[in-house]
Structures are given as structure tokens and as C-alpha cells.
Design a protein around this nucleic acid. Structure first.
Lengths: 346, 346
DNA sequence: TGTCAACACGAAAACGTTTTCGCTAAAAAT
DNA sequence: ATTTTTAGCGAAAACGTTTTCGTGTTGACA
């Protein structure tokens, strides 16, 4: 086992100084053709590679970006990561990930662990618990220390940083309008409690679409699911809730759900109740994932372009990192959503 | 914007030496109660945190583990990552990820990028292209340089390192036996080309199960799918192939697929052909993911316990990193698979 | 008064780089 | 023959830590 070789060792071996070795390897004109070749040959032989940590320390940048997401076993988030990784690597950066597991504490810890020099900047999406507690001091502090942050998807407005979001209102409006223009008269929405920013916005889009069609919203048709229900195996209670929705509102002929899973489960409940999809009832879900594509019937969805979001976020961050001037000009990129029509709608 | 503060700055500000500050912060007995309090108060005020990079350089370890996986938008791999992240964080390590995208070159590049001091050890699953080319010199070199590697799932036997695998043969044998004991007489398998190690092993398990039941394997019932087919939207041709399988073998009453997607698609084709699941034909897929759980009918699967694999892998690696002695004793952990029975089998 | 611990602190090395500056010797210019 | 230039190389600082090894000052004790 030959340990990694260092400049010092090469220098000693070749009986020159460390500086000479360093310069020779970087093809400096200061070094004679002779020694340059000698050093380079030796370095290649021993497979020399400069130590990244030493470089990071010297240059005071790590060429690494930290990503903190609430959950990784999740189609959307893993797509975002893929996007981030893609452009990060292309531009010579590594990606280090932290999972908050939707917990405030873990988010704070992750932020602190990485902010101590390990990375050059953050890309993150806020944990639910954090959104609920509305405590954002850790983000502010991090930014204050000169560490740039790019937020995506789950953001909060009063934090000053770059952001990549989709137009949730517009996206869900598009979806609900589709249902309405397809002839649905009684469209229900399955959404989350309001503290989840995207849930709230998507509910708003639902309401706006109804307004466009001059339909008075019926609160009975708005099902706000408590998120605890979805954690692991409480899915049955979610089913029960949706069943209740269908029972008390026999006339529902369209359902818009703020995520894929809610939509799939709703479809399942409807099917079990003997409703024909899409003839008697139509479904659209937010977020396009594997489930939608391979469900039966396949689910019409609002595609968030997760990978694109990741790419854009990484682009913003790296641009910021490599910008000379210190203009504190923050951008918010809005990614267009796209309605992916499948067989759950007419 | 107050930049991160260093020991040197604290020292200058308090008019003591750097060493004093360092010791004071670490509660050294060398330092008087007075100065200790003074320094600690100042440090807290300015929110001092030791620079990780400097520590890494000094200690010659980064407390970071590198993970290289072929793909992240993938239920199994993201579960593994979650497991890795879980125990890594618990034991004070960070996780940095690289995606090979199933490409040999990207795998090599990732390995090299991270091996230069950025991390203390690797956890990885081999890219398909690498398996195909059977070129493993980059792994060997990395290990040779003293960088430990733990391989999981897609491994190769003649590399000397820790491994975490499942017993693919046993797992698929279990699945196929289930089909046979459920009364299936003609069980088909949908598998991959042989260079994918797990595909090969799962095929072997299939054959062994048949043998146990004294059934002569029928090559017509073995469909080896070329992986190119599955990349993105070539799914239709996969459907066609499966359709062909059913057409030329009208008597198929059981299907075992080496992954979730193949199984789901096969079910879809069968349903379109008017077969009743599970009455006329039963299905089992390898790898338990979201699709299986929420498909209709829900799919019986062989659960690989991805998160568990990740946890075990991280445990192995960190144990190795923190072990004093240099005993080159490599372990292979075999994770038990579990048959998750759902509605696609009787 | 002189010796010795105990106490409190600082200097410096080390981790592995890159880079600035200086130095020496030879070559060129005067 | 003397000065200037230039080529080729090395010393040292810097990045931010931790830690070992001094070193000076005190107080106690003989």
C-alpha cells in the first residue's frame, strides 16, 4: 500500500525544494526544461494529485456546495439533486448533502456542520417543521456570515437570497382550469395545512380557477390533510378521510390533489367506490413522479421540472460564488410548470 | 456582514496568543479561570466555530464519506443514501455524493475527484458500464492508496474490500418458490442481460426454484431485456417484448421480474390482455418501491431493505476508519430479503 | 535568601499547498 | 573589467488549527 504522495516527498526524493516541485508541475517558466520533465515524470509515476483539503485551506474555498433537503426518498427531491449535481460537476464543484428529515433541529445542525468551512454555499429547501415554527434565524445568520444560500421550492419570502421556485398558484390554476374546461362541475381539492407554503399557494390557485369560472367555492370540497397522516403507514386514515369526502359530496366529478400520492390514493378510493375514471370523475395531481406515470389509469399531473430547478439553483449559486463584485442583487427564477396529460382526465 | 472569525482574530482582539485562545476554548487546565471565561465569552459573542478545513488538514481526516451511486432518481438508491446519511451523521460524518450515471468514465472521474483528500472512504455501487467492461483498476488503485471502500448491491467479487449485499439467489428463489407453491405451473422471468451481476444471480435463483419443484426450465419463459430499452421512453418496446412473451406462451400463470418496473409493466400488459390478477396470473417483483405499494393491484415484492444496507455499509466503513490496527480483514454482510406479500399473488 | 513547584501563557511546528520575494551564478551588456 | 540582466532555484509566508515544549512569574518552603 503506497500512501498518497506529497510535494514534500517528491522534493526530498528528487533533492529539490518544494517550491520547485510545485512550479515544475504547473509548468512555470521559472523552472528549467530539465527539472520540469524530471519532476513531472516522477509525479506521474507516483500518481501525484494535489491534496484538495490543503488547496481549500489555501484558497479559502472548497469548490463544494452543500445541499440540504427535507427528504431524499422522494422523486422530486432526487430529481433536483440530479440537476444540481449535473451542473455542479460540470463547473468543477462537488455536492455534499444533508437531510433535515423535515426537522427543524436537524436542519439547524446540518447548516452549522457545513457552514464551518466545509462548503462555499448552500442550496436548500425548507423543512416542514421550520415552516411551521417560522423560525428562520439560522438562515439569516448563515447569509450574514457571507455564505450564500439558494432556496428552492419551499422558500420563505422575507429571507434575502436567490430563489428558484415554480409558480404554484399558476400551476394549480392551470390544472383546475383544465378540469373545469373538461366539464367538471364539482372539483374538490386535497391539500395540506396552510403552513406548508406550497400547499397554501396551490389552494389559492384552485380558488382562482374557480373564480374564473364563476363558481363559488364550497368549503366541503376542500380537504386539508394533516401531514402526520401521510407519515409512513397512516395512509389508511388518509383513505378514510378521502372516502368521507366522496360520501358527503356525491356529486364530485373532479379532484385536484397537491401532490402525486394524494391523487393516487384518491383515485384508488374512487375506483373502489365504483366510479369510472375519467368518465365520471377526473383527477390531476401536482408533481410528476413515477407513480403518476405507471398508475392505472396513468395520472395527469403538473410537472415541476425538478431537475431543471436543480440545474438553475446550482447555476445561480455558482454564478454568485464566482462573481467578483459584491452586488447584493438577488434573483428569483420562476420555472414554468407543464401539464402532463395522461389518462385520468378526458 | 461579519465574516467568520478565526482564532487569530480573537487572539489579537483579546491581546493573548493563538494557543491561549485555542486552549481556553477547549477548557484546558493550563489556562486561568479568568482568561478562559473571557475568551469563551468573546467566542460565543462572535459565534466562533473552528474551521473544518483547517481541522481536516491538521488531522489528516475529513470526517466525510464519499458515496458514488449510478443513479439517484431511484427508490432503492435513495433509500440506501438515507441509511448512510443516518448513521454517518450519528457518528459525526458528512456525506458527499457523486453520480456515475451508469457511466464508467464518470465513475472514474468521481473516484479521482474525491480521493484527493476530500473524503476518508468510499461507499459505492458499481455502474453498469463498468460491470460490462469489467475494468476495475480504479477501485484497486484507490484501495491501494489506503482509501477504504465499501461496496453494496452491485459488487464484484475479486476486489478486496468490505461488501454489503443481499442474497440475490436466495431472494429470487424465495419469490419464485412462492409462485410455485401458490400453484403456478408456468412461471416466466423477466430479467436483464447477464453482465448485470444482480440480474444474473436472480435468474439463477429462478432456475434453482424450478429445480426444487422438478420443473425443466423453458428458455421461452426467460426474457432477458436489454437495458437500453428501459432508458427513458423506450418503455413501449419493453411492453411489446412482454406482449410477445405472453403471446407465444399462452399458458404463463406466474411472472417474476427482477425489478419493480418490469413487474409493473408486465402487470399492465397482462391486464390489457384481459388476464385476471392474481386469479389467472400472479406477479412478484424484486426490489420494493413506491410503485409496488401503490400499484393496482399492489405488487408482491422482494424487499431489499435499502436503508438497512446503507446503514450497514456506513457502519462498516466508519468502523474501518476508526479502527486502530491495520488488520486487513474484510467483511461481507448479507442482508436478508423479505417477501412483502400484496395483492398480485394469491 | 535561595530553591523549587505550580501556574499561566507563548512560540513554533505541523498538516500540504501556492506564491512572492530573494539569492546565486552565469551570461550579456557596457 | 565591471556592471547589468537573466535563468533557475530556494526560503518563507500564508491559510486555521492543535499540541508540544519551553519560559517567566509567583508563592511556598527550607
Amino acid at each position: 500500500m503506497k500512501k498518497k504522495i506529497t510535494l514534500k516527498q517528491i522534493a526530498r526524493e528528487l533533492d529539490v525544494s518544494i517550491s520547485t516541485v510545485s512550479k515544475a508541475l504547473r509548468d512555470s517558466v521559472e523552472i528549467s526544461e530539465d527539472t520540469r520533465q524530471k519532476v513531472q515524470a516522477f509525479a506521474k509515476l507516483y500518481n501525484y494529485r494535489p491534496n484538495n483539503i490543503a488547496l481549500s485551506l489555501k484558497n479559502r474555498k472548497t469548490k463544494t456546495i452543500g445541499v440540504i433537503i427535507p427528504e431524499i426518498v422522494h422523486h422530486f427531491f432526487s430529481k433536483v439533486i440530479r440537476g444540481i449535481e449535473l451542473v455542479a460537476n460540470k463547473r468543477g464543484y462537488n455536492v455534499i448533502i444533508g437531510l433535515s428529515n423535515e426537522s427543524f433541529d436537524k436542519e439547524v445542525i446540518n447548516l452549522q456542520m457545513l457552514a464551518n468551512g466545509s462548503i462555499d454555499g448552500f442550496i436548500l429547501s425548507i423543512a416542514k417543521e421550520t415552516l411551521q415554527q417560522q423560525d428562520y434565524h439560522h438562515f439569516k445568520e448563515t447569509i450574514n456570515q457571507g455564505m450564500p444560500i439558494v432556496m428552492f421550492d419551499r422558500i420563505v419570502n422575507d429571507i434575502h437570497c436567490d430563489k428558484v421556485i415554480i409558480d404554484d398558484v399558476k400551476g394549480s390554476k392551470k390544472a383546475v382550469s383544465k378540469l373545469l374546461s373538461n366539464g367538471c362541475k364539482n372539483v374538490a381539492i386535497i391539500t395540506t395545512k396552510d403552513y406548508v407554503s406550497v400547499g397554501k399557494l396551490r389552494t389559492q390557485g384552485y380558488l382562482e380557477a374557480l373564480e374564473d369560472y364563476r363558481i363559488t367555492p364550497d368549503t366541503d370540497l376542500i380537504l386539508k390533510v394533516d401531514d402526520e397522516l401521510v407519515s409512513e403507514d397512516h395512509l389508511e386514515s388518509l383513505e378514510k378521510e378521502i372516502e368521507g369526502l366522496f360520501h358527503t359530496n356525491k356529486n364530485i366529478d373532479g379532484v385536484f390533489a397537491v401532490n402525486e400520492l394524494y391523487a393516487i390514493i384518491a383515485m384508488k378510493v374512487a375506483r373502489n367506490l365504483g366510479m369510472k375514471i375519467p368518465d365520471e370523475i377526473q383527477f390531476i395531481g401536482f408533481t410528476d413522479g413515477v407513480l403518476s406515470k405507471h398508475a392505472t389509469p396513468s395520472l395527469t399531473t403538473v410537472n415541476q421540472h425538478g431537475q431543471d430547478m436543480g440545474e438553475k439553483a446550482a447555476g445561480l449559486l455558482i454564478d454568485n460564488l464566482e462573481r467578483e463584485a459584491e452586488e447584493e442583487q438577488y434573483t428569483t427564477i420562476v420555472i414554468e410548470t407543464e401539464l402532463v396529460e395522461r389518462n385520468s382526465t378526458k
